[in-house]
Design a binder for these strands. Structure first.
Lengths: 175, 175
DNA sequence: TAGAATGTTTAGTATTTACTAAACGAATTA
DNA sequence: TAATTCGTTTAGTAAATACTAAACATTCTA
């Protein structure tokens, strides 16, 4: 016989795995899983109970989940506890995540390519004509690729504001 | 004054960072960077020289880079050495990477959701009618989201076979 | 103001990861 | 077969990561 708690635990464990697969802490997945299966917002202590993690772990992971827009804090008047609920519009979350990633590290990374390219175009180094041309060509191609990724992420960010029908039609074009 | 080797090193370091940002070993980025700046395929020993890594590290990372389709082995007749060159069609690489990811872990992850959903729909557990309906609804939404991701990755995989014009036009729709 | 309830931060730890160094194996040549 | 040349695998290590346990800070309540 399968108990309610077993079903919940199984799901929570599954979400841990998914979280890990995408390079996030397992705890993040577990917390999200617990919240996602709850019809009402859960407090930090309830999350401790549901996931088996400690307060500290919950506290830090809840923060990053909130930053990612995957969960939302819910404050109740005359109740000092913080409650959290899962975002159910995943596209909205994806948008938030991409936006965050973009501004932080990604630009920095792209920049290093840009710098190298600039060095070369400024005539730095002692490459002969042919080699310099080759390197510039390659770096330009790489930068184009990064720009394309940039466009795609921007596009995905837009998906949320468009109707789901637009999304479907785009997908159809690509199929 | 900026030497040739400094420019190369700067770029290789930049690629290390990008690699790390995307959750891959720094060495992978460095190796790819070295190959990408070379007009001719490089041997394992030449990679050791260019990146400062050891043979072992090169050996293992070259293998995964090859699996990802980011570089290609080049064998020369009457030469026992393995050479490698960078793939310059990044869309092709993306396609390979997505294909690989999909079949391995991602499906497994999605499956855990499917299982939980099946349990619930089979009437397992002792949830009251309302709660069961709620849980089923949420899990279905999650599965829809995963399916959508699946479609997107399939679509991106297709990008390579489509002309770049199609890609541009799709992006324009979304802008 | 003392005490309780709640969330955060910190210090320490266990695990994972990515690398190095070196042994190993396989294939080629002498 | 011995010696050489490659690439792979393995054992060990250093560093990063994610967690626990517990101290701490803050806010509310008695």
């Amino acid at each position: 016989m399968t108990t309610n708690s077993q079903i919940r635990q199984n799901f929570i464990q599954g979400m841990s795995g998914i979280s890990q697969f995408w390079g996030f802490p397992k705890a993040m997945g577990a917390i999200f899983g617990a919240l996602y299966l709850s019809a009402t917002p859960l407090s930090l202590d309830e999350l401790v109970e549901n996931t088996g993690l400690t307060k500290g772990a919950i506290s830090t992971n809840v923060r990053t989940l909130t930053r990612m827009g995957l969960i939302h804090p819910v404050t109740r008047m005359a109740d000092r506890k913080d409650y959290y609920e899962a975002e159910t519009d995943f596209y909205k979350s994806v948008q938030t995540i991409l936006k965050g990633r973009q501004n932080n590290e990604f630009d920095r990374a792209i920049n290093s390519v840009k710098e190298t390219l600039a060095s070369l175009e400024a005539g730095e180094g002692s490459f002969d004509k042919k080699e310099r041309a080759f390197l510039i060509e390659r770096l330009k191609a790489l930068q184009d690729f990064f720009d394309a990724i940039d466009n795609v992420t921007r596009a995905i960010s837009k998906l949320n504001s468009l109707g789901i029908n637009t999304v479907q039609s785009v997908i159809k074009i690509l199929k």
